[in-house]
Design a protein around this nucleic acid. Structure first.
Length: 416
RNA sequence: GUGGGUGUAGCUCAAUGGCAGAGCACUGGACUGUGGCUCCAGUGGUUGCGGGUUCGAGCCCCGUCACCCACCCCA
């Protein structure tokens, strides 16, 4: 094989593409009801956009970005996520002058230079939402409920909703300090990765998978015990709203976010039916980011859904039907083929998928093809039919055959 | 970036170091202009690539590439 798609990138072909369309159209229909409007954002941005928002010390920025120079020497990066662009656009177009909240969604590919594995790709697709301008927990609750409804409408079940609050710039430093104090006592017993995390991002020690580290974090301080008054209140209100709406969730004090811009609410939806990459959607608040981009202080939050992972789950549980032609027109001879094309055009004007015969094949093989395509009807046109101005119809799904005037095909199809 | 696994027909997979095969799929026929079921036939391969060992390599060795899984990180 001479050519293949770049490492970690894949073609999405029929029939899988219908899973994707089902996911996206379901999400769109729910976005509409919740007032989330679509935006299109660039697939590349100035590298600085991502460094500033995601954080210079994160793995994404340090090791995983597709960064290059354009012809004018500017440093450009293929977006590794969507929030930075959305915030940049929000500020660039002064959308904070519009009534709050402003609620948006976008859909498209993201790029990270990682080693591929199950559920992880270098080009991966997300549907993301961002909501700006409301700090009240009711917005958090609405977004989380919408996410739940989207996933359930898509047809997914058995998902775990995990939620946490990671505080803000007031309280998180205190918590970090407490964590450093705690793990500092047993620093030598932590795994090498965690000793590194101890220095770079101590919160990450909390979701280490090494047995030894899991043991060592027994009794570690919980972030929720260190929340300042405002963060505490925000979190409590959110939880009680979720409870009153009967949303089942799990408090996970070890749920931390990798990106620097997150504040307060962090949430994640996971599935036990995927591999190690089990998060199907994740999000949280980022109340400081708009200001960071030069806008007025504007609270915001969002989430992103991982398309490949959702599609993988959906494929297991509920295969999505591929569309099939309503009619296959089998023809015998040149004259009939031309008549077949004319009939196909007529029926297409009333919105039907009609497949013609492209010449040559025996009737038998044409009917076999019609069957394989999943066509509901086969129309047969040969010399006899041309003579009398009728076609033979054959119902490939239910059986049965008959003839009908060529001029009456549209009413015929409407009647069955 | 680290570790492990796997590379043979479009797909799923066989083949003790000794003639590269099966099932499915595809095309055609049995059935002159009637799908599915059955039967028959046919198309399809530099065994990922490059070296080496050997009388002889799909198989053993070295290298390389790709894919898969996990770590890391993350949707």
């Amino acid at each position: 094989m001479k050519y293949s798609a770049p490492k970690g990138m894949q073609d999405i072909l029929p029939p899988d593409i219908y899973l994707w369309q089902h996911i996206e159209s379901t999400a769109r229909s729910l976005f509409f009801r919740y007032g989330f409007q679509e935006i299109k954002i660039p697939i590349i941005e100035s590298t600085d956009i991502f460094v500033r928002s995601i954080g210079a010390a994160t793995d994404i920025v340090e090791k995983e970005m597709y960064t290059f120079q354009d012809k004018a020497g500017r440093s450009i990066t293929l977006r590794p996520e969507g929030t930075a662009s959305a915030v940049r656009g929000y500020v660039e177009h002064s959308l904070y002058n519009l009534p709050s909240p402003q609620k948006f969604f976008y859909s498209g590919p993201m790029f990270r230079y990682e080693r591929p594995q199950k559920g992880r790709f270098r080009q991966f697709y997300q549907i993301g939402v961002e909501a700006f301008g409301v700090s009240q927990p009711s917005l958090d609750a609405e977004v989380i409920v919408m996410l739940k409804n989207i996933l359930e409408s898509i047809g997914l079940r058995d998902l775990g909703f995990e939620i946490n609050s990671i505080g803000d710039e007031q309280c998180r430093p205190n918590y970090k300090r407490a964590l450093v104090d705690f793990f500092g006592k047993n620093l030598n017993e932590l795994c090498p990765d965690c000793r590194r995390r101890y220095a770079t991002n101590p919160l990450r020690i909390l979701d280490c998978k090494v047995e030894q580290c899991i043991g060592l974090r027994q009794g570690a301080p919980a972030v929720t015990d260190y929340l300042c008054g405002e963060c505490r209140e925000h979190f409590d209100e959110l939880l009680s709203m979720l409870q009153s709406m009967n949303i089942r969730y799990t408090l996970n004090p070890n749920l931390v976010r990798g990106l620097d811009y997150y504040t307060r609410t962090a949430f994640e939806v996971t599935s036990g039916h995927l591999g190690a990459q089990k998060a199907v959607a994740a999000g949280g608040r980022y109340d400081k980011l708009v200001k960071e981009f030069g806008g007025p202080p504007t609270p915001a939050l969002g989430f992103a859904i991982g398309m490949e992972r959702i599609a993988a789950l959906l494929k297991e549980i509920a295969p999505v039907d591929s569309p099939a032609p309503r009619v296959f027109i089998a023809t015998l001879g040149k004259e009939a083929e031309i008549e077949g094309f004319k009939i196909a055009e007529d029926l297409r004007t009333i919105g039907l998928w009609v497949e013609p015969n492209y010449g040559g094949a025996s009737l038998k093989s044409q009917l076999r093809k019609a069957d394989r395509l999943g066509a509901e009807f086969a129309f047969i046109i040969g010399e006899n039919e041309l003579k009398v101005g009728k076609i033979q119809w054959k119902n490939l799904k239910k059986g049965g055959q008959g003839e009908v005037e060529i001029n009456d095909l549209a009413p015929f199809l409407r009647g069955v």
